[in-house]
């Protein structure tokens, strides 16, 4: 089915509907899965959980920048990217939850740290603006390739979510690319900070492209992470070369996020994100 073509649910009646037009919304996914027209397999749900957690934790990180950006334009830009990521997270989590009878909020607020499936890159603290840009640059390059391929998934819902997301990530890619060039080619200080940001973030690239038994089982429903690595190296390499930045000597960390082994940072992110929801379990907001 094409979720775009359906007119499901009454969420359009909400006074605070925030997605204009007939774009795919998390509410549409909930409605489609409720009606039983789509239901993810266990493997697809596990996979959606990974992608949803990546986007959710990044949105949580970026949300902190709003009102703290170096320019008002960046408050708006980083806020927009955070919103896009949160939208993708809600879609992936809503879809994943359908396999287990859980809502997006059950998954976001009531899972424990080892149950999260995000990669370490997404958990990393914002640092200064250059650190945030270094992370954003890696994420945008990765997600752009990932979603572009996933939009061809044999799972129609994953394909639909990815098709919407890739258009938005295209802007994130442009935003982070422009800033990598500006910071690397701006002043001595900005260059020093951009190099430091890449030194901090680049080690987490490796985990994004690790295959495992789940991605092998998914076949054409998912995207084999390692299949994206060459193009990732080319697309980031072009920009880094223009910026005269070299990441070739940086080591790769081992990762473990997909199996629930996280960095030192995720616990703090979850503590803050989940505190209110857990104070009132079962409450509606």
């Amino acid at each position: 089915m094409t979720p775009h073509a359906t007119n499901l649910g009454d969420s359009s009646a909400s006074a605070t509907r925030i997605t204009p037009g007939n774009a795919l919304r998390p509410e549409d996914i909930v409605e489609a899965t409720r009606l039983g027209t789509v239901k993810p397999s266990e493997d697809v749900a596990e996979y959606a959980l990974r992608l949803g957690d990546d986007a959710l934790i990044l949105a949580q990180r970026l949300g902190h920048w709003i009102s703290r950006g170096p320019e008002l334009e960046e408050d708006v830009a980083l806020g927009n990217i955070a919103l896009d990521q949160l939208g993708h997270a809600r879609s992936f989590l809503s879809y994943a939850g359908a396999a287990w009878g859980k809502t997006e909020d059950d998954l976001a607020y009531f899972r424990r740290e080892p149950e999260f499936r995000c990669a370490h890159l997404f958990e990393q603290p914002n640092g200064d603006f250059a650190v945030t840009i270094a992370r954003a640059f890696i994420v945008a390059n990765y997600q752009f390739l990932l979603y572009r391929e996933l939009s061809k998934s044999t799972d129609s819902m994953l394909a639909a979510i990815a098709a919407k997301a890739v258009k938005e990530v295209d802007y994130h890619l442009d935003h982070s690319t422009q800033w990598v060039l500006r910071l690397a080619g701006g002043t001595d200080e900005s260059r020093r900070r951009m190099v430091a940001g890449l030194n901090l973030m680049w080690p987490f690239v490796g985990e994004l492209f690790q295959d495992d038994s789940l991605t092998a089982r998914l076949g054409a429903a998912g995207v084999v992470p390692s299949s994206l690595k060459d193009e990732f190296d080319r697309s980031t390499g072009t920009v880094l070369a223009e910026a005269d930045l070299d990441v070739s000597a940086l080591h790769m960390s081992t990762g473990g996020g997909r199996a629930g082994r996280h960095s030192e940072h995720l616990g703090f992110v979850l503590a803050e994100m989940q505190v209110l929801a857990r104070e009132f379990p079962g409450a509606s907001w």
Partner: peptide
Amino acid sequence: ANWITRAPSLKRKSILMAKVQDEAGHG
């Protein structure tokens, strides 16, 4: 912005982010 990271549901978080971002736009 004080409540963006603690909003109690993802829908509320999304709306609040959009709202605070609008305010930067108004500025």
